[in-house]
Amino acid sequence: MEKKYISKDSKELREKRDLLEKMKDILDPNVNHPTHYNKTGIEAIEGIKGSMDINEYRGFLKGNVLKYLWRYEYKLKPLEDLKKAKWYLDKLIESVEGENEK
């Protein structure tokens, strides 16, 4: 079977990423898109991102990663805090990847 390579900018890859995000929301909505963070139709993370320059935003993401890693052992739902740390880390990675693709 011949291997198929997908370009980082391809429509197919974007569609697969979108599908993966939808699946994450279904499986764990408290981590990926809590309803209390989207009361006005704008995700809180998007409002925060829009209020900061890129370095401030990345600092915010990094701080949240550290916060959730710092305290997960002391929480009733440690796995949920680890998933939240990963969510913020994934956002940080996306931000850096986006810069490198320009």
Rank of each mutant, 00 (worst) to 15 (best):
K24P: 00
D81T: 02
K4C: 01
E15M: 07
T40D: 11
N38L: 01
P29A: 02
L92H: 10
N55L: 09
I6F: 13
I48W: 08
N55V: 09
D25N: 11
G47V: 05
W87S: 08
H33R: 15
L89M: 13
E12C: 01
E101H: 10
K77M: 09
L76K: 15
E80V: 07
I45E: 13
S7T: 04
S7P: 00
G98N: 10
K62A: 09
E80S: 05
H36F: 10
E97L: 08
L66H: 05
K22I: 03
L19T: 12
E73H: 12
D90V: 01
M52N: 03
K86R: 15
L69I: 13
I42G: 02
E21A: 07
T40V: 04
K16R: 14
E101D: 07
R14Q: 10
N64K: 15
D28S: 09
L66E: 15
Y5K: 15
K91Y: 08
E101C: 00
T35H: 11
I54H: 13
E99P: 00
W70P: 00
E99I: 07
M1Q: 14
L76W: 15
R17P: 00
K86L: 11
N32Q: 12
A44F: 12
K16D: 05
G59D: 03
I48M: 10
R17E: 12
T35I: 12
M52W: 03
L66T: 13
K24E: 08
N55I: 11
H33F: 06
M1I: 12
S7V: 01
G50V: 01
K49D: 02
L69F: 12
Y68I: 02
Y88N: 09
L27A: 13
E80K: 14
E73N: 13
Y74D: 14
D28Y: 11
R17G: 00
E46L: 11
E73G: 06
K77P: 00
P29W: 07
K8V: 10
E94A: 11
A85P: 04
Y72T: 02
K4H: 09
M1F: 12
K67C: 01
A44Y: 14
K75I: 03
E21P: 01
K11C: 00
W70L: 12
K102A: 03
L79I: 13
Y5V: 13
D53E: 07
D25W: 12
I93F: 08
D81M: 05
W70A: 08
I93A: 04
L82G: 05
W87Q: 11
E101M: 11
K75D: 08
M23H: 07
I6T: 15
M23L: 11
K24T: 00
D90T: 06
I6R: 15
M52F: 07
D90A: 08
E43W: 14
W87I: 03
V31N: 02
I93Q: 08
Y57V: 03
I6W: 15
K11G: 00
K39S: 05
K84F: 06
P29M: 05
K49A: 01
L79S: 10
